[in-house]
Each structure stands twice: as structure tokens, then as C-alpha cells.
Design a protein around this nucleic acid. Structure first.
Lengths: 142, 142
DNA sequence: AAAATAGATTAGAACCCTTCTAATCTATTG
DNA sequence: CAATAGATTAGAAGGGTTCTAATCTATTTT
């Protein structure tokens, strides 16, 4: 009972990275554990860097950025832009949208089934819809 | 027939600024003309700065930023964030959404009546919905 | 109308987040 | 186990935005 291949593949993270064409290096594995093994999260590069340091991983900020982008490109993460000058990476890559708390600058998932659009415009000629982002901006109510 | 108060208030821009509590200074008037008198536009601070220079207005980049934010706060403009590291200001403040052309980095209005949501989540406790942004991200079709 | 003053503008420095560089290290291949 | 393609790194550079503190100007007061 050392490995639980089906349950929660510990060493399976390696295969997961390999599966998307990324070498399972020490740093990528560390970040994959932090990001991909837990629940849904929204992290900034800076916050993840700090978290990794505190968890005892030695990893440079440049690698954080590289990895975040590689994971995003590989479909393991999703980038969310809601504020000028800061990017969030969302570990939830399923169909869903976001609340944005203007006062705290934080994001919160809205399950896909809680937003429904009954009318969408056709994409202009020569283009096709890549993704539809819905951001519900919140302010404190008094 | 020098002034057309109702038609297209030339000097009326002054009143418009006063109306939102902003002193009608030379620079603000110049930007108000560039932005508010024409059709719908999506400008970045840098682009507006360049445009103002080319139009013969002397205005610093700092003032462009100040003014853009003041206009936004006053409800004359709307800020749209779609890409990390760059803000657009939309002269269309009516209810509408946006296409974002990933390849060119440009924005295009979607009239409000071409997007309809039949389901929106309730705002979390202590908050209320400030605005809902829908961004339809486009890619080139082959 | 002139003086006073509160607010606006400015150039340039500072800032923050992100990307780049080119040197070093490491997972994989032969 | 050597070779090599790819990954990591610290620190510099970059781009957009904000700040600073000095100067200027629209408005108010006298």
C-alpha cells in the first residue's frame, strides 16, 4: 500500500507532466504538487513563489513564470486577467466563470452551471470564438 | 449661428466636465474632445498620448493617466482589462460587452442586446454586483 | 482686478510585475 | 557514462503605470 495509482497518483504527477510533454524536473514537480493536487485555487506568480519558498522548495521567480505559462499552455492551468498589472492562474480548468472582489483583489469561482447565456454574437469574419470569460465584479454592500 | 448648444455642444464640453466636478482645463478639454466627441473607441494611455501629441496638444503622459482615471471615475469612460500589462479605456459607457482579438490585441464592442444571460449567480454575502463583464476571446479561424 | 489658494500639470524618477540573458545545471539519450 | 537538449538561475532589462515635488493655472477671495 505504498502507491495508490488510481486514487491520488503521487508519483503519477510525473506521468502527468510527461503526458503534456514537460520534463518532470524537481521544480516542476514541486509546483505541480502545490497547484494541481489540492482544490481549486487562484494564484499570482509572486504568491506562488512565496508559497514555494515557505514550503522549502528552492525555485526562482523566473522558473515560476516559465512553469506557470507552460502549465497554462498545456491546459493544466488557466490564466485570468481582471486587474491591470497582475495575472492570476486558475487551477480549475473546467468550464466556469469568476467573481472578482474589487475590495480585496481576489477571485472566486462561479460554477459553470450558475451562468447561462442564451444569446451570443457570431464571431466576426475570419475569427472564431476561443473562449468566453464572464467576470462578475463585486463591491461591498453596505 | 456660432454656437449649436443642442446639436454638438462645442463649448458644452466645459459644462460636461463641470457637471462631473472636474475643472475644465486646457488638457482635459483637449482629451474630452478627442475621446468624447467622436464615436466609440478603445484607447490605451500610450496611444492617446501619441494621438494628442500628433493633434498638436502638449500634454504629459502623467496627465493622460490622471485624466483617464478621473474620466473613468466620473463615468465618462470605462476601463477594460483583457491582457496583463495593458489597460484600455472605452468611450462607450452604455451596457455592452467586448470581443477581444487575441492576434491583434484589439477590442471591439458587442452591443448589449447581442449578449443575454438568463442565469447569474447571486452575489456572495456582504457584496453586491457592480458590473458583469463578458469578454468573447477570438482567434483567427483557418 | 489683483492676490491668494486650491487644484492641475509636468518631467523624470521610482515602481511593480514580467520577460530576457547568458551562464550553470540536469534529465534524458546514445 | 559521456553527450546534449532542455531547464533553471540570478540579476539585468523591459514596459506600463504611478509617484514626486516643483511649477503653473483656474477659481475664489479681497
Amino acid at each position: 500500500m505504498t502507491n495508490q495509482p488510481a486514487e491520488r497518483p503521487f508519483a503519477g504527477t510525473i506521468d502527468r507532466l510527461r503526458g503534456v510533454g514537460l520534463r518532470p524536473t524537481r521544480q516542476r514537480l514541486a509546483l505541480a504538487r502545490l497547484l494541481l493536487d489540492g482544490g481549486d485555487r487562484h494564484v499570482s506568480a509572486e504568491a506562488l513563489h512565496q508559497e514555494a519558498q515557505e514550503a522549502g522548495f528552492k525555485i526562482s521567480l523566473a522558473t515560476i513564470y516559465n512553469t506557470l505559462h507552460q502549465f497554462t499552455q498545456a491546459g493544466l492551468l488557466r490564466e485570468v486577467v481582471v486587474e491591470p498589472g497582475r495575472s492570476y492562474f486558475d487551477t480549475n480548468v473546467s468550464d466556469h466563470h469568476h467573481f472578482f472582489h474589487a475590495d480585496t483583489g481576489s477571485l472566486q469561482d462561479i460554477p459553470g452551471d450558475q451562468v447561462a447565456m442564451n444569446l451570443l454574437p457570431a464571431a466576426p469574419d475570419g475569427t472564431e470564438i476561443d473562449r468566453v470569460d464572464v467576470i462578475v465584479r463585486l463591491k461591498k454592500s453596505d
